[in-house]
Design a protein around this nucleic acid. Structure first.
Length: 433
RNA sequence: UCCCCGGUAGCUCAAUGGUAGAGCAUUCGGCUGUUAACCGAAGGGUUGCUAGUUCGAAUCUAGCCCGGGGAGCCA
């Protein structure tokens, strides 16, 4: 018997096949049953009549939602079935029946966020969540593939770090061995600067941790970040790389995950536009745009969610804002040669109000300037000795950025909150399941 | 840390000072083309916790607990 996945059911019209999955729903109509099966790749309606298949009918009748089943039957085109195909069930094997006393908690109806997050391990079985996770996987695959194609080498940064990478955000402290303290990384950037001096063009892609007490739809305490870094690269090189990377991710999802985008009812037209070149405006131009919209922003302010939305909604693709004031940016960013009060930095803002998905910059490569900035920011010089070494031994101009995977996937999938685009979100006050 | 909102049956919600209810889910019965099927019946409650006001509190007050949205910070 041919075992198939539901996504390919249409190719087996009029053939008898076997599907291994779960009972998604069951409608009973007297001597006729309409089970809906899912197998992770999609859902398909089955039909089973008492008259034609009494054995299968009795096994299926009253079966509980999410019971695991192996079903065999003939696939046929059927207008009345969701998806256009249905299976005439002739044989069913129940792998495990969900007990009536403990029915599957997630019904085919609206549920509250709190409940769903407590049931996250089961919530991911629903078609919408499964589609999002498949798109996330495609985004990761496309991102790696693009970086590799551009000659970047993956050099993973450590997750345990001795001290703050940027000195600003709150860190998760962990007990290391023998009473030593260590911290969970909040960015692989400093390490990737080191590997860039070793290998030229590199990136790291892994989880990062922020103990900030942020409670917004754009924040997780554990999220994934892709951080390229290239020796001899300058700010415009990174803006080129960023728009190439984001375009590659989006186009790859559009091309290979159209079924999932359809499940999510995402407007694909908006994604098809996402191709280079992306608009680029300076920070000062962005402030002028904000003021024109009646926003009280002035030079020297950092942008919040409202500001990002105003700026990004003027474009149909991500916009890159560059040359922010040094005062509101990280200590390691290289000042502009002509306007030393501005940093060679850029943020990429996603359309439709999804906010910042990339933050990047050219890094300070001069030893004395870096020392000065460490002091200005009250950062302990001794913790940064290895980082300063990079400026002692053949320092070169270099640049990089960090791309937030969840924010990018939230935008691509049109998901309201980024907690839905990671299998098990870690948020302030929520580390279960 | 601050501001706002919420917590009633397994789930989604109603009841605004006077007997705690509906739909879904579960159980039982009915139905041969259902689309979160439908129809009939049953079981299911320490109204987040504590104290107070009151003849009487899900409802009013205070404190606490647990969530959600946003700000700041950031990806």
């Amino acid at each position: 018997m041919t075992i198939i996945t539901i996504e390919h059911a249409g190719k087996y019209d009029a053939q008898e096949v076997t599907i291994r999955g779960w009972l998604y729903n069951l409608r009973e109509s007297g001597k006729l049953l309409f089970p809906i099966f899912r197998d992770g790749t999609g859902i398909i309606q089955g039909v089973c009549s008492l008259k034609e298949n009494p054995e299968a009918f009795e096994a299926l009748k009253g079966l509980t939602q999410e019971s695991s089943v192996i079903v065999t039957g003939k696939i046929r085109a059927e207008q009345r079935a969701p998806g256009g195909y249905e299976m005439g069930v002739s044989k069913i094997q129940i792998v495990q029946k969900v007990p009536e006393a403990t029915p599957f908690p997630i019904q085919l109806k609206e549920h509250g966020v709190d409940f769903l997050l407590d049931q996250r391990h089961l919530w991911i079985r629903t078609p919408r969540q499964a589609a999002i996770l498949r798109i996330r996987a495609e985004a990761v695959r496309a991102a790696r593939s693009f970086m590799d194609s551009q000659g970047y080498t993956l050099t993973d940064a450590p997750i345990f770090t001795p001290a703050a990478c940027e000195g600003t955000s709150t860190l998760f402290e962990v007990n290391y061995i023998d009473d030593q303290k260590a911290y969970l990384t909040q960015s692989g950037q400093l390490y990737v600067e080191a590997t860039a001096m070793a290998l030229g063009k590199v990136y790291t892609f892994g989880p990062t941790f922020r103990a900030e007490k942020s409670k917004t739809r754009r924040h997780l305490t554990e999220f994934w970040m892709l951080e390229p870094e290239a020796a001899y690269a300058e700010l415009p090189d990174m803006m080129d790389l960023g728009e190439g990377l984001v375009s590659a991710i989006v186009q790859s999802v559009v091309k290979n995950k159209s079924r999932e985008l359809e499940t999510l009812k995402r407007d694909v037209k908006k994604l098809e536009n996402i191709r280079p070149p992306f608009p680029r405006i300076t920070y000062e131009e962005a402030v002028a745009v904000l003021q024109k919209h009646g926003n009280p922003a002035k030079f020297g302010d950092d942008f919040g969610g409202d500001e990002e939305t105003i700026i990004s909604s003027a474009y149909d693709r991500p916009v890159m804002v560059h040359h922010y004031p040094s005062a509101i940016k990280a200590f390691y960013m290289q000042p502009d040669a002509v306007r030393p009060d501005l940093a060679l930095s850029f943020d990429m803002l996603a359309p439709e109000g999804y906010g910042e998905i990339i933050g990047g910059s050219q890094r300070i490569h001069d030893y004395d300037l870096l020392i000065k900035r460490l002091k200005e920011n009250n950062l302990p010089e001794e913790s940064f000795q290895w980082y300063l070494d990079l400026r002692r031994y053949g320092s070169v101009p270099h640049a990089g950025f960090g791309l937030g995977l969840e924010r990018t996937v939230a935008w691509i999938t049109g998901t309201e909150h980024i907690r839905e685009v990671i299998p098990f979100p870690r948020m302030i006050y929520r580390v279960y399941p």
